[in-house]
Design a protein around this nucleic acid. Structure first.
Length: 561
RNA sequence: GCGCCUGUAGCUCAGGGGAUAGAGCGCCGGCCUCCGGAGCCGGGUGCACAGGUUCGAUUCCUGUCAGGCGCACCA
């Protein structure tokens, strides 16, 4: 675990604070506290390797011109570390630090040494985090929205794991409630139809062909013996059969998508185990529940929500919300310090009252974080495809993987911010699959593998980093590549802190671009032995970083393409 | 009407309190006697509009306009 960029930033920040203190003791700068300043890599490389805005922030409290403050600070810096080559004051008052040209190359041996762990950071300090995602109704197939949730949730979980959290991936199975009733009625209608009886799938039921398939499967297994049974018994048997079938299908599709869960949590189990009742009793005891028109209501308005919410209907059946309250209580009772839910935008109205419920349960509502992802709009043949369970017309995750490919599909979802309204053009994703950015990144990896393979075939042996002097790497592309490699741990930390996988996607694309540029300008295997050694390790470090980053997005790192 | 998300290049989207705002696609030119051309190099008058905070705003705040999604004793 090492982050050379972070080490330098912290070192420079310490030096600057020291300079400010020294200047203060000489009465050159009089301020009562150190402002919250930054030490960052400037966008323009002409502005040095690192720059700070400290002088500009001090100007006002110190009543001095920013550049004057900068001058004083620079003069009062303790002896510069040897690796700082030059310090300049520029622009409105930035202090720019120029480091020795090869500082970035120090990252290379570290990367080789840490290998598959390069990029791991300690941000999470082992905190227990749960990421719940997809959690689709098990009454149907997974659609594009679920696919986005799967790609995002899995990647967020992987990034948090890499950033030092103890992560649990969980799928909440909505195997209770009204949609299960509807599911049963729809199955029953198909079953009866197959047996030549008059029956209608309810208007708001499930009309997809998969329901018919389930009914057929049930018929093959059980025959017509449920024709004579009571409807309740019939529907129970149908639901039990179809649900098991659906859930295992969902598991398989997600596995094929590269998504593995630690826990599959049944909503029904909360009812059966009395946890829903226990949670409601607890809230009742705390005074957050009242009765009105024979229904029980949660006082969401006490927690800043617009209106109160029904938890038990007049007919005595608890709502989905009641189960969700019990579920979240269960999560916190399991010891999760952070609970992250990935939800579609159509559920955003649920966020405020859920947080209210968490607070009512006596937990910190900030411990519940909800990543709201905007909806996916699907285009096919230049037209919007409306996804609807009623008509049974939607593109499934399975079809998506078949048509577009797992890696391309996952990258497409994860390369964009969850906040972006995603237009997914199926034809484009298919027809241009060779131009898909994911291949650009994977190609960089395969290309490096090819070089290393070739070197091995020539009888070459990978050098030990300690035996190589990286000062020989002087070319602009070499240094830019090494610089980018050094950034990886910081990118992981930032992606984790912001729950933003798209940052990793962008980083990898940029890294791959630098590799390709380097590759097209310079040869790795040359007649200069020293140079060859250094470049071999440079590309090997790049390969490791690409592979680790691709892993965070759930993508493969192929050695050949 | 109220709430959440979004308005950045022709298109799809990154980025984000700082010094000259990026990528992909598309379009136009170049680059293989040489480790993989799924590649490289070059070509750009763009932050919806109006106020405000700030030394500094495309970024933060308020409002306007436009689009998406919610506002059930569904989940």
């Amino acid at each position: 675990m090492s982050d050379i960029v972070e080490e330098i930033r912290v070192g420079l920040a310490h030096s600057l604070v020291g300079a400010l203190k020294a200047a203060g003791e000489k009465d050159l700068i009089k301020v009562d506290h150190v402002p919250d300043f930054t030490v960052e890599a400037p966008r323009e490389k002409e502005h040095g390797d690192f720059a700070t805005n400290l002088a500009m922030l001090l100007a006002k409290p110190a009543r001095l011109a920013p550049r004057k403050v900068a001058e004083i600070l620079v003069r009062n810096l303790a002896r510069n570390p040897a690796w700082v080559e030059k310090i300049e004051i520029a622009g409105p008052g930035f202090i720019n630090f120029y480091l020795q040209r090869d500082w970035v190359c120090q990252a290379i041996p570290r990367i080789i040494k840490e290998s598959e762990n390069y990029g791991r950071v300690k941000l999470g300090k082992g905190e227990k985090v749960q990421v719940e995602f997809v959690s689709a109704n098990p009454t149907g197939l997974l659609h594009m929205g679920n696919a986005r949730g799967a790609a995002l949730g899995d990647s967020i979980a992987a990034i948090l794991d890499f950033a030092g959290y103890a992560v649990t991936r969980e799928f909440y199975i909505n195997d209770a409630g009204k949609q299960i009733e509807n599911f049963g009625l729809s199955l029953e209608a198909r079953y009866l139809q197959l047996l030549g009886k008059e029956a209608q799938v309810p208007e708001d039921g499930y009309h997809g062909g998969d329901i018919l398939e389930s009914a057929r499967g049930f018929l093959a297994l059980e025959g017509d013996r449920y024709l004579a049974s009571g409807p309740l018994e019939r529907r129970c048997a149908l639901v039990k059969y179809a649900l098991a079938e659906k859930i295992s299908a969902i598991k398989k599709v997600l596995e094929d998508f590269g998504v593995h869960y630690d826990v599959w949590f049944s909503e029904q189990s909360l009812h059966d185990g009395g946890e829903v009742q226990a949670a409601l009793d607890y809230l009742k005891e705390k005074g957050w529940i009242y009765e009105d028109e024979q229904a029980l209501w949660f006082k969401a308005t006490s927690f800043g929500v617009e209106k109160d919410e029904v938890v038990v209907r007049a007919n005595g059946i608890p709502t989905y919300f009641a189960a969700d309250i019990a579920y979240h209580r269960n999560k916190f009772q399991r010891g999760f310090e952070r609970v992250i839910n990935v939800w579609g935008a159509d559920h955003h109205g649920h966020v405020a009252r859920m947080k209210g419920a968490v607070a009512a349960l006596g937990y910190d509502p900030a411990a519940l974080e909800v990543v709201i992802m905007q909806l996916v709009r699907l285009y096919k043949g230049g037209e919007i495809v409306r996804m609807s369970k009623r008509t049974g017309q939607f593109v499934t995750l399975e079809e998506l993987v078949d048509e577009v490919g797992r890696d391309a599909a996952r990258y497409f979802f994860v390369m964009r911010s969850p906040d972006s309204h995603l237009d997914f053009d199926l034809d484009l994703a298919k027809s241009e699959s060779n131009d898909n950015p994911v291949y650009y990144i994977q190609y960089a990896h395969a290309r490096i593998c090819s070089i290393l393979r070739q070197y091995g075939e020539q009888g070459g042996v990978m050098p030990q980093p300690s035996s190589v002097d990286f000062i020989i790497l002087q070319e602009e592309y070499e240094l830019a590549l090494a610089r980018k490699l050094a950034d990886f741990p910081g990118e992981v930390a930032s992606a984790a802190a912001n729950l933003a996988p798209q940052r990793i996607a962008r980083y990898l694309h940029e890294l791959a671009g630098l590799l390709h540029s380097f590759y097209n300008s310079h040869r790795v295997i040359t007649s200069n032995r020293e140079l060859t050694m250094a470049r071999l390790l440079l590309v090997e470090a790049t390969r490791i970083t690409l592979k680790n980053g691709l892993g965070l997005l759930g993508l493969t790192a192929p050695e050949r393409m």
